[in-house]
Amino acid sequence: MHLEDIVKALKLRVVSGEDGLAAEVLGGYVGDLLSDVMANSKEGDLWITRQTHQNIVAVASLKDHAGIILVQGCNPAADTLDKARKEGVPIMVTDMPGFEAIGKVYNMIATKKGPDPST
């Protein structure tokens, strides 16, 4: 599953890191607490959050995330955008509420990976 497939299917607006859209999305992580995301997210995750300040770029970059989706119409702060563009971190925005965005992303990734082993 490539990031651009998710962007197209969910009609996300890409505001930075266009060059990273070909990256493979290996999983997802949801959280607004940065220490939680630092400790528990994984490389290749698509991070879904509503934090918009510039420190999200450092977290995504340190954790080698595929990208960040800002939900509920949140827009990145100007310095977040600058930093993300400089570091090539893809940030996507959507008006969807978090629950909806997460569900759609999960379905796309889960379907691609095959049936849920728990069912």
């Binding site: 607490l33 940065l34 220490s35 939680d36 630092m38 400790a39 959050t49 934090q51 300040h53 420190n55």
Partner: peptide, 12 residues
């Protein structure tokens, strides 16, 4: 508000 200060840093 910025998502810091959750009391997880030192534990991490």
């Amino acid at each position: 508000e910025m998502g810091f200060g959750a009391g997880m840093g030192l534990c991490n």
